[in-house]
Structure formats: C-alpha cells, structure tokens
Design a protein around this nucleic acid. Structure first.
Length: 264
DNA sequence: ATCGGTACCTGCACGC
DNA sequence: TGCGTGCAGGTACCGA
C-alpha cells in the first residue's frame, strides 16, 4: 500500500514521538515479518534509545544510538500505530519509556529488520525522487530500454514510487505507460521529473492516499485520494480532455491512463 | 545486465 | 446465505 508520501507522512508523525525514547520491550508475534530471530532481535532492541526516524524510499529507518538501525517496510498493508491496542493483525509491538507502537499487517508483505549498517535491499535502492536533479534523472531514464511504467516501479531505478503515483505522474507528464524510456525526448523526460516531484509533494502535503487500508500513525486516512486524476477512475472523464479514463495491465499491474492525453 | 513471469499472504467485492 | 473467483497500494527470485 504505502508509497513514498504515505511513509513520509508516518515518519513525520513518529519522529517527535520516538526521538530520544528508549525501547523497554519489543515483541514479534509472527516471524515471517521479521528478518532474523524474534527473541534475539527483541533482546538486542531492549534498552536501546532511538536517535531519529528517517526514511529511504518506502523504508522507515529507526536509527538507534548504539549504531543499530531498525528498518521497517510496510509492504502492501502494513501500518504503524501509535498508542493503539493489539488486534488479530498485530505482528509486532514496541513498548517505549513513553508510549507504545504497534506494527499491524494483515497480508504480511512488510518486513522488519535490525542490523548494524543498512540492509542490502536498502543499500541497492535507486535515488530519492525528491532529491535527484533533472539532468541525472533524464540521463538515467534515457539509458533504459524498458517500458516507462515498470521502470518507475523498479526501486533500484528510482526509490519510492508505487502503482498509484506512477500512474499519476505519467498522466501529469502526458506520457503513455507503455512508452519506451530511451525513446522519450529530453524535454518529455524532464517534464516527467517535474511531474513526479509535484505529485509526491502534493500527496505528502495531503497526508497520503487512502484507497482502502492506508492509515497514518494515529489510524487516520490520508486526503489525496480525492485529488487522484486517473488512478482508480476507469470510465470517468479525463480531467484534461474529458475522454474516458482507461484501465489496462502493464507489467502485471493495473494501470490507469488517458488514451488521448498520454502518448507514446 | 535486464527483462518478464511467478510466488508470497489475507481480505474483500462480486457474481452465481 | 454461501462459495468460488479475481483483485489489491509491495518485493524477491527465477529463468530467459
């Protein structure tokens, strides 16, 4: 579920609550969401103080003072809930010296990992879409022969976009999701860079997108779903040209676009 | 090196 | 009401 704007929303809510707090107890209720042994990980976390809450692409990074990092990826349905009570989907619980944090995840595609450096899957992530410069983005894009949408979803190419914001950025840039990256003009590639930045910034400002599951650290939905222009709007008129929005499948992912505004 | 396809999980909407 | 089917915002891993 959560893409960069949702993870950033959670990070901003958790940072003031978690920074400087000490972990009194950690419990893991399902070993599948944890990379490593539950009891050993809980023992290593006990007594650790949290220095800061960072984010890298869709990963939350709880930096601990003892040079350890607790990395949390929310998968499709993960949520981090501050002060909530345990449910059937609660997979982990962290008791702090002030407050407590639950990790809920019905589908268990999320992952929690404790390690000294950064986990391998974080180390190999591509650049942050809100930090990469236009020229570098254009160069990376034009070097690839893949279709543009699956490329935007490839986290080693660019870290943080998921299905919703890929479709939204391509619509705003007027690019067909099946367009081949290397065949785009520099001008259109630059336009895509700008579209990605604008949609991510607007989504963060709105507190993320809630289609069905996403909730922030207080269990509240986001506000960006009403501003989506194509995602989930099959048959509705394109906000730019009024042609019906179409749904297709690209790279095994449901894909929404305007066949008139978005060109290959 | 890069790519497309499949697997991993559960819950829900939908049609019969 | 109940059951089968398909779909869902994510990534890892396989073989081509």
């Amino acid at each position: 579920m959560p893409e960069l704007p949702e993870v950033e929303t959670i990070r901003r809510m958790l940072e003031p609550r978690l920074a400087r707090r000490r972990i009194l107890k950690a419990e893991f209720y399902d070993r599948r969401v944890l990379c490593g042994d539950p009891l050993e990980t809980a023992a290593r976390l006990r007594g650790q103080r949290i220095a800061s809450v960072g984010r890298r692409a869709k990963h939350l990074l709880l930096e601990l003072e003892g040079d350890l990092t607790l990395t949390i990826h929310l998968g499709m349905t993960g949520s981090l809930l501050w002060g909530a009570t345990r449910t059937a989907h609660t997979r982990a619980r962290f008791v702090l010296d002030e407050g407590r944090l639950l990790y809920d995840d019905p589908r268990m595609f999320g992952r929690i990992e404790l390690c000294e450096a950064l986990p391998e899957r974080v180390a190999r992530l591509g650049p942050e879409p809100l930090e990469i410069k236009p020229a570098e983005f254009v160069a990376r894009l034009l070097a690839r022969r893949a279709m543009i949408k699956p490329l935007l979803l490839n986290q080693t190419f660019l870290g943080g976009l998921g299905n919703i914001y890929s479709d939204e950025a391509l619509f705003r840039a007027g690019i067909h999701p099946r367009a081949i990256a290397t065949r785009l003009s520099k001008k259109r590639a630059r336009r895509l860079h700008g579209a990605i930045r604008r949609v991510l910034r607007a989504a963060i400002a709105a507190g993320g997108t809630t289609i069905s599951d996403y909730a922030d650290a207080e269990g509240q939905p986001g506000g960006f779903q009403v501003r989506l222009r194509v995602y989930g709007r099959e048959g509705e008129p394109c906000p730019r040209c009024h042609a019906p929005i179409r749904r297709t499948v690209v790279g095994q992912r449901g894909t929404y676009f305007c066949g008139r505004c978005q060109r290959k």
